[in-house]
Computed example of a mutant assay.
Amino acid sequence: MGHRLIRPLRGTITRLLQQQPKLLPTTNVFLNPNSSRNYISEMRKEAFEGNILRLLRNEIQYELDRSPPSQHIPEFNLFIVDEKPGEQWIRLQKKFGETEDIRVDVTMFDASVPAKKPGGVVAGGDVQLHITMIVNVFKGEGSDVLEFICSAWPDTIEIRKVFTRGHDRITAQPYTGPGFKNLDDKLQDSLYDFLETRGINDDLAAFLHNYMKNKDKTEFIRWMGTVKSFIEKKQKK
Results as ranks from 00 to 15, higher is better:
R4F: 00
L5E: 13
I6H: 10
P8C: 08
P8H: 09
L16M: 12
Q18E: 15
Q19E: 15
Q20N: 12
P21V: 03
L24D: 02
T27H: 02
S35P: 00
I40P: 00
I40A: 00
S41D: 08
E42F: 00
K45H: 14
E46F: 04
L55A: 11
L56A: 10
L56N: 07
L64I: 03
P69Y: 03
H72A: 14
N77G: 05
E83R: 11
L92H: 02
K95V: 00
F96V: 01
E100D: 07
I102T: 07
T107N: 03
F109Q: 13
A111V: 00
V121Y: 03
V122T: 04
A123Q: 10
G124K: 15
H130R: 05
I131W: 04
I131R: 05
V135R: 08
V145W: 02
L146Y: 05
F148L: 05
A152S: 15
W153K: 05
I159W: 09
V162A: 12
F163K: 05
T164Q: 15
I170L: 09
A172L: 14
T176W: 00
P178A: 12
G179C: 11
K181L: 14
D184M: 09
L187G: 08
D189V: 07
I200N: 09
N201E: 02
D203I: 02
L208P: 11
L208V: 05
K215P: 00
E219A: 14
E219P: 00
I221R: 09
W223H: 14
M224C: 15
I231G: 07
K233V: 00
K236F: 07
K236W: 10
K237V: 04
